[in-house]
Design a protein around this nucleic acid. Sequence first.
DNA 1: ATGGTCGCTAAGCGA
Length: 259
Amino acid sequence: MRIATWNINSVRIRIGHVARFVTDAKPDVLCLQEIKCRDGEFPLNAFADMGMRHVHVVGQKGWHGVAIASKHKLEKLPSPPLCPAEEARTAAVRLKGVTIQTLYVPAGGETPQPVENPKFAHKLAFLERMKALYRGADTNLVLTGDLNIAPGEHDVWNHKQLLDVVSHTPVETEALEAIRVGGGFTDLMRAQTPEPAKIYTWWSYRNQDWRGSNRGRRLDHVWGTADLAPALKSMTIHDATRDWDKPSDHAPVMVELKG
DNA sequence: ATGGTCGCTAAGCGA
């Protein structure tokens, strides 16, 4: 089974990119973040044309919003209650004996100070809820999404320079690692491509020559509970999409699990 | 140190 995750930054404006990616990479399941539309505005017909006939949409007007699309029948599950602001940032489904969750963690604003920056406080509160929710061993759970944290020094283009930049501050990276360990998750991307290889999934729109300068960060993640780790066959960051016309600033990540 | 670019919706916010 192939599971992909992609912060699409508006599913309506980039529906053609989704179709091209589905044709090229043939995911069974595609988790999307930042769909930026209400449930009723989601382009279900276009997904059906791609063979993705089963879709769980958790949208809201204009901002945020997540969805899980699948070629196989899925059971919609309640969204994990992680967002203190109750924004549309989480979705979950059950499919072929596996629970798949997708998250869009708050970006956190500019300043990594919760007192003066409420957006950073919001991000930290979201992470606290993740820590509580995922504590203790689970099985057959795949967690995907834009976690808006690049946890390791090889997940950013310049570790020292980004230590005080939101997404790579110690308070965030340590929180994410504590969530991962506490939940018994394996980082499937790093299981396939261990450090010190540098791997990124996001490149700012403000870097025109994104590949030349390669100032990327690994903000998007695929975790699996430990029981699933032996099934991991491959992991691909489809960064070719970043060169398509009017791309998302994130590239899709896909893992392939045996069975 | 600054500004650089997007998408939403209709001037500015969030990323």
